[in-house]
């Protein structure tokens, strides 16, 4: 099953190179990737389509795994990558950068968005960190909700005072892979791989934690350390993906529920499935968005419209797995 999904993901990646306002045949793509001489197709594939596909794969995997970790850690099905206030922090940083520092364009604010997301997650952890003798994650969830709300409120208020910031923010919020700078792919890839490695290292501890605090302690799991590592992984993954593609938190919410359905129990397996399913969703959304309307429909919109019916079908299925 896992192998099949990997093949599907690879096919989707190839399709995402071929489909667009100018359709390319497989042969053209192959030539463009291998032949050294310059051509319009080569530059189209290498400078526009390939970066975009890579962006979708890494950002998708990052958001998916971050969502899975958030759900496992808080044992709350509503948890999504934005639970640590990442989206709110990034959007407040963007509004501040555009409205007060005069920054403009995506390339200008992507680092602000990342920084805002990381700092916000750190603040949420400082306020909501579990107290001694208790590993109850509800404090953390509420702290994320509270900080997220405050920053969203501040961001909205500031953006209503500064129209140009509002204009940039509404474009970022929706979530899209269009017009991203190719230079962000390397840092995104490095951070995503780092985050997933960290998450994979914690998967056994998370399995133990799912049995409850007492059982986890009895199994010799250091609950506190696990929580900190998982939170670090969520922050790295969600902040980098969100800064790169915008607030497409829905992937992180939806993909783990689907993966849980396919993989059954075992955080490690669910994570492996999530790593494949989430990028698939984002790739499909991006490709469909390119051809559905004249002009482009943002991947964030398509993603929600593909993912929502899937999630509802899963929820209605007999096997819907509670946390």
């Amino acid at each position: 099953m896992l192998g099949l999904l990997a093949v599907v993901l690879a096919l989707l990646a190839v399709a995402s190179l071929a489909v667009g306002s100018r359709a390319l045949s497989l042969e053209t793509i192959f030539n463009a990737l291998t032949a050294p001489q310059e051509s319009v197709e080569r530059s189209l594939v290498l400078s526009s389509r390939l970066p975009r596909s890579l962006l979708a794969i890494f950002a998708g995997a990052g958001l998916g795994v971050a969502g899975l970790l958030a759900q496992s850690l808080t044992r709350n099905p509503l948890a999504e990558p934005g639970i640590l206030g990442v989206n709110a922090g990034a959007s407040l940083a963007i509004v501040s950068a555009v409205g007060f520092l005069g920054v403009s364009g995506f390339a200008g604010y992507v680092s602000f968005a990342f920084l805002g997301a990381v700092l916000t997650a750190a603040l949420v952890y400082l306020i909501g960190r579990p107290r001694a003798g208790s590993a109850d994650p509800v404090r953390l969830v509420l702290s994320g909700v509270a900080i997220g709300a405050i920053f969203t409120g501040l961001g909205t208020a500031l953006s209503l005072v500064r129209p140009q910031a509002f204009d940039q923010l509404r474009a970022w919020t929706i979530g899209s892979l269009q017009g991203r700078d190719a230079s962000i792919i390397l840092p995104l890839a490095v951070l995503t791989i780092l985050g997933i490695a960290l998450a994979a290292a914690c998967s056994r501890s998370l399995d133990g934690l799912a049995l409850g605090e007492d059982a986890a302690t009895a199994l010799g799991i250091n609950i506190h350390r696990t929580q900190i590592l998982v939170l670090a992984a969520i922050t790295i993954l969600a902040a980098s993906a969100t800064a790169a593609v915008g607030a497409i938190g829905f992937i992180g919410l939806m993909a783990p529920h689907a993966a849980r359905r396919l993989a059954g129990a075992g955080t490690g397996w669910i994570m492996a499935y999530t790593c494949l399913l989430a990028p698939m969703l984002l790739l499909v959304a991006d490709v469909v968005g390119r051809i559905m309307l004249p002009g482009e429909l943002q991947a964030g919109v398509v993603c929600a419209f593909i993912g929502a019916p899937l999630l509802i079908a899963l929820a209605r299925g007999k096997k819907a797995v509670a946390l």
């Binding site: 993603c303 929600a304 993912g307 929502a308 019916p309 999630l311 509802i312 899963l314 819907a320």
Partner: peptide, 13 residues
């Protein structure tokens, strides 16, 4: 879950 799904689709619309 259903609420999340429907809200997410509408929010993005």
């Amino acid at each position: 879950l259903v609420g999340i799904g429907v809200s997410a689709a509408l929010a993005s619309f």
